[in-house]
């Protein structure tokens, strides 16, 4: 059997898509897609088309903002854990453990409904400048997702910072670089390169977390599909389309990251 597998392996490398079983599989897949198109109901598409685009845009916006903010937060978190004194490292460690140890859904609900239920006790909040933001749902979604991303990525950055070879930092110090300059020119870029492969995975995971904001009344693409389901009472069509949309976004993300990774020198350390 192993021999067989080896032979097939060689064949697979020579003509990747043109093997008979692949062609059959592709035909079966095509058949399924065509069947889905013809036998399922898609007449609701034009009506929800604009809403869907807006939803996709919102999801992507939340993804981008929370990833960038989360990463910015992850850098100090990782740094504190990798080098900081106990008073810096301990809180960072506790933060990462708590975020990673509890479901995002609970964090989100605690922030939105939990904090919300405390508002009536403090009437001055409604007079403050923050109120127009606190009234809406998306700031809570962004906050929860940012903290979550920071928690997971902070752990990665800790490893990345600790993994930069001591010699490099010592060499930089020998050149008389200031601490800030060492951090900016040597330590951070090296750690970033190390963290980059995991960053792809984390970003995809983050994308997969964004639909949770729909549970606190933010209208992202998931919420749009729920709306379609509720309005039309269709079960499968909106969900299948939604799955396809997420797969496409994931594909684009993975492709984009692989391009970025390819441009970065792969010999690190």
């Amino acid at each position: 059997m192993a021999n067989e597998a080896a032979i097939i392996n060689v064949a697979a490398r020579t003509s990747l898509w043109l093997q008979p079983h692949r062609i059959v599989l592709i035909l079966v897949a095509l058949g399924l897609v065509l069947g889905a198109i013809f036998y399922m109901r898609w007449d609701w598409l034009p009506q929800y088309y604009e809403m869907g685009l807006l939803g996709i845009w919102r999801s992507l916006w939340i993804l981008a903002v929370t990833c960038v903010l989360g990463f910015l937060l992850a850098v100090p978190l990782g740094l504190a854990q990798a080098t900081g004194s106990f008073w810096f490292a301990a809180p960072a460690k506790v933060f990462c453990t708590v975020i990673r140890g509890t479901p995002l859904l609970i964090q989100l609900w605690l922030l939105y409904y939990g904090l919300g239920s405390l508002f009536p006790q403090y009437p001055w909040i409604r007079e403050s400048w923050m109120w127009p933001y606190l009234r809406q749902a998306w700031p809570y979604g962004v906050l929860a997702l940012t903290l979550s991303f920071a928690g997971y990525e902070g752990e990665v950055m800790r490893g990345a910072f600790a993994g930069v070879p001591k010699g490099q930092l010592e060499a930089a110090r020998a050149f008389g670089m200031s601490r800030w300059k060492i951090f900016r020119r040597i330590w951070l870029p090296q750690a970033f390169y190390r963290a980059l492969p995991t960053l792809t995975g984390e970003t995809v995971l983050q994308l997969k977390s964004t639909p949770l904001v729909a549970t606190i009344s933010v209208i992202d693409i998931f919420a749009v599909s729920s709306k379609v389901r509720q309005d039309t009472y269709l079960t499968y069509e909106p969900l299948l389309l939604l799955a396809l949309i997420y797969m496409t976004i994931t594909g684009i993300l993975v492709f984009a990251f692989s391009r970025i990774e390819a441009r970065i020198p792969n010999k690190v350390g």
Binding site: K208, T210, L212, Y236, L239, L242, A243, Y246, T250, G251
Partner: peptide, 10 residues
């Protein structure tokens, strides 16, 4: 590639 939430519903 697909969010767990969507898979669970589906």
């Amino acid at each position: 590639a697909v969010p767990e939430l969507v898979l669970i519903l589906l």
